[in-house]
Design a protein around this nucleic acid. Sequence first.
DNA 1: GGGCAAGATTTGCATAATGCAACCGTGGTT
DNA 2: AACCACGGTTGCATTATGCAAATCTTGCCC
Lengths: 166, 166
Amino acid sequence: MTEEAPPGGDEVDAITESVLTASRLLVGVSAKSVAAVAGPITLPQFRLLVALGSRGPLKLVSLAELLGVNPSTATRTVDRLVTAGWAERNSNPQSRREITVGLTPQGRELVDRVTDYRRREIASIVQRMPAERREGLVAALQAFSEAGAEPPPRTSPYDAALTQWD
Amino acid sequence: MTEEAPPGGDEVDAITESVLTASRLLVGVSAKSVAAVAGPITLPQFRLLVALGSRGPLKLVSLAELLGVNPSTATRTVDRLVTAGWAERNSNPQSRREITVGLTPQGRELVDRVTDYRRREIASIVQRMPAERREGLVAALQAFSEAGAEPPPRTSPYDAALTQWD
DNA sequence: GGGCAAGATTTGCATAATGCAACCGTGGTT
DNA sequence: AACCACGGTTGCATTATGCAAATCTTGCCC
């Protein structure tokens, strides 16, 4: 089933290949940005910070759900981030059974630095592209994403900071 | 800031956004494929299998390097895969200090099943795209990847199976 | 008001992933 | 033979994860 010649197959293969190659490039850029700017933090931890940065303070369950991990994992990752001074737990006066997790100023600054770095990297790549290809890129990718039944297109700058499983 | 007009910055933002959105979609597809087809295997383990599938048997250090992990991590992940019957260690008659790691038939079959599933998912997305956008996608993405100074463009089908850090 | 079901978080337990450093063979050099 | 670089493994410590059980809060019914 991976063979047939009719109009469809080869083109699909070509697209798959090109999208994945580009995706790989991008993920590499993200990883590099984290490593370059944010010394002693792990990727899962940073991903959590990014989520908080883009959505604002969240209760633990929502956070876990957003990241696609078990609440217990979220709890413990938050523990570490709190210890490191990047996140904080705040009790919710409304219902004392839930807590909200948010960024500390240091946490936000960390996320910002990484995001800026990453944006510059990407910009430098885009600027090396032939200009006439750029519009095509945006249009085609949007069509692709729409066809893939995208979730809500959040347009926060943080959103872009780490692709992994978001 | 997502509006357009001036030549430089906004366009870069738009591209960044669209590429990342698409990338996110794709990574989701990959994860879903692994989960759907390959029950009890972790992502790092599967990633290792994919590497073996695309490059053939490798010595341990090369494998670790390819995956970007420490040799000790590779050793132990291979241990688990061997136990599970998906990979095998073979001693190299040439030099007894190196070993090569390869897929077992079961391992290859697992990778194939996931890859096929994933390809079908992507194909179904691409087929929902307006046809006239498709060529633009390939051309633009290739330009993007080239501008990003891609590593060797391996064109194996396995290559596409998991994007994460590859 | 007491009791109970449902919801939110945390803890206990077990396993995987990771990196670093130390260690053991192997192969080549001098 | 003496050394040294290379490949792989093991010991140690920390993080990441999921599942299940325990804890605390809320809301609701009788």
